[in-house]
Structure formats: structure tokens, C-alpha cells
Write a protein that binds this DNA or RNA. Structure first.
Lengths: 174, 174
DNA sequence: ACCTGAACACCGTTCAAGT
DNA sequence: ACCTGAACACCGTTCAAGT
């Protein structure tokens, strides 16, 4: 990092407490959200939620280190902004107060899990062909998994959207 | 670890390649699943899924290091066993082949996200009172979050079960 | 106010040598 | 076959000293 900035390695400590602090700053920077580009239809809550969560995931996947980082970091302002926005949207859509928090956390869980999993598969499978091979032979002993190609299907984006749809379908609206 | 076994630190390297290998072994050991204790009603697919996923989460929370570890690890036999079981149960419950993988991954995502988040909040909030204080002041600038007590509600188990219910409700059955 | 190099503590691993 | 200590590389951080 000091190289990138063109300074001595120790100079950084003047500006920042320690490594952890750098992580906090970097993470929250990645997670800035500017909202949907054109003003959306006021009634399209599904579209709004979908857009925000897909952007969330995409932002993190652009910086794969951020995925493994998020869980252990403090809640920065940009994360809280997203949660606030999510709250408002869901509430307006008709999710009752008694269900609101559970709904938000379930969406959070879903995005976190999907993003972290996706990012780490990228790491593991740097060598695409070898990975296919490995997963195929792994599958052999698990018939249902094998026949559905659970481990071989690599339409991650599609799976993300589809599963998110299931979850949104399950949210109880007033 | 060498202390625990009562050997010199370097002796470990005879039995195991390196640190990573130890992690792989430890993780898969944690995730062993014995199935529901008493033979469940054959038709109670929801109960079966719920039991397996709650056990999954509980197993990992018993060893909080495992949560942050899972994403970057290889898929061990015990994990695959769980996925296989999940496949079979959902399929039998009536989830169509075209939806099956998305359904499985969405449950996986949910469990991963919930467990990792929960485990790391425990780490961060070693000091309960200070954490409450910190979260309260954080909430101030986010009215919807504040009024719903999103950050202060600590019924994690309840939220997990409830959100999981939403997701299961949203799965399309034939 | 801002930058720097020397020094230290910590930790994963290698290797040659033991039994 | 199994264990060990010495040694090394790596990295986050402290501190006293510079401008």
C-alpha cells in the first residue's frame, strides 16, 4: 500500500491507527450506494429492493477481499444507509412492524451468504478446468447432487436473482 | 495445538501438511450431521429442513472460528452430505427440478449469512453494555432502523427461524 | 505537521539431525 | 516411523529521530 502511495511503509501509521482501521475505511467506501439511477416507479418495491441488493453484491464482488471482510467489521455509515433504505422500502411495501426486522435480516443473510460464497469459489477455482474435474468426481458419491449438477451449474447471477425471488415471495405483506 | 497434544510444535508437521489442512479437517469434523433424532413423520419436510439447518447453524456457533472459515474451505464430505440430504428432502416435498438448485443455494446462503453474522457480532460485542451504547448512538441518524430497534433486538435464534420461514414459504412447490 | 529506518514480537514453515 | 530445535522469512507495530 505504501508503494502505491509512494511513501515509506511507516508513514501510513501517521494517518491511520492500524491495519484494522484501513479495512474499516476500505470496506465502507466499497459499499456506498447512490440509489436507483432513474427515479423508479413509486410502487415498484420489488424492483427497488432487487436493484439495491444486486448492486450490493456486485459492489462487493468487484473487490473480493471485501466479502470475507464484511462480517467481522463494524457497521459503517454506508451499510447503515442501505439497511435504512431497505427498512423504508419494505415497510412501505406492506411488511408489518412485527415482521420487519426478521425480513431485513433475512435479506442481509441472503446477500452475505451469496456474496461470500461466490467470492470464495472464485478464489478456489482459479484453475477452471481442474475445478470442474474436482467437482465432478466429488459429486459422484452424492446422487441427487450429481443429477441436478448442483456443483457444476455456474450461472451464479441467475441463481442469485432466482433465490432472492423466492425469499421476496415469502415475505408476508399486510 | 502442540501444547494440547503434549508434543513439540514441529511434530505436527509430520501428521499434516500445513495449517490449511488442519482447518479443512477441523471444519468438516464440526459439520457432521446425524439426522433427526427420532424418525420424523415422512411428510414433515419443513420440520426436517428446519432441523437440519438449525443444527447446521448451531454446530458452527459452537465453534465460532468455523463460521469465518467455511467460505474459503473446500467442500468436505460432511457438507456434501448435508447438501445431498437437502436436495432429497426438497425434491420429495415438491420443488421442481428447474428450481431445485436455486432453492438449495438460497438456503445455503441464508444459513451462511446468518451464522457468519451472528458469530462475528459475538466477537465484536464481547462487552455487552458498551455495544448497546454504541449501537444506540449509531441508530440515531437512521430513523426507520431506530424505531424498529433493528440493531438492538437480540433474539437471534427467533429471527433466524422466522426469516427461514419466509424463505421456505417462498419456495415454489409443484 | 508529517515522514522515516532501525528494531522487536509473532508465527508458519523448512531442514538437518535425532531416536 | 516419528519427533525435535535451530534457523529463516514474513509482517504488523513501536519508537526515537529526522525535516
Amino acid at each position: 500500500m505504501a508503494d502505491r502511495v509512494g511513501s515509506g511503509a511507516m508513514s501510513l501509521y501517521w494517518h491511520v491507527d492500524n491495519k484494522e482501521a484501513v479495512f474499516d475505511l476500505a470496506l465502507d467506501t466499497v459499499l456506498e450506494y447512490r440509489g436507483p439511477q432513474q427515479k423508479a416507479e413509486p410502487q415498484d418495491w420489488r424492483g427497488e429492493v432487487l436493484h439495491m441488493l444486486e448492486d450490493w453484491r456486485a459492489s462487493m464482488l468487484r473487490h473480493p477481499w471485501s466479502a470475507s471482510l464484511l462480517p467481522r467489521r463494524a457497521l459503517g455509515p454506508n451499510i447503515l444507509n442501505r439497511l435504512e433504505l431497505l427498512s423504508k422500502t419494505l415497510s412501505a411495501a406492506g411488511v408489518g412492524d412485527a415482521d420487519l426486522n426478521a425480513a431485513i435480516w433475512s435479506l442481509w443473510n441472503y446477500v452475505m451468504g451469496a456474496t461470500i460464497t461466490r467470492a470464495s469459489f472464485d478464489f478456489l477455482d482459479a484453475d477452471r478446468a481442474a475445478a470442474q474435474q474436482r467437482l465432478t468426481s466429488l459429486s459422484e458419491r452424492y446422487p441427487t447432487i450429481e443429477s441436478s449438477h448442483l456443483l457444476l451449474d455456474d450461472d451464479w447471477d441467475g441463481a442469485f436473482r432466482k433465490g432472492l425471488g423466492f425469499l421476496l415471495d415469502g415475505l408476508p405483506l399486510r
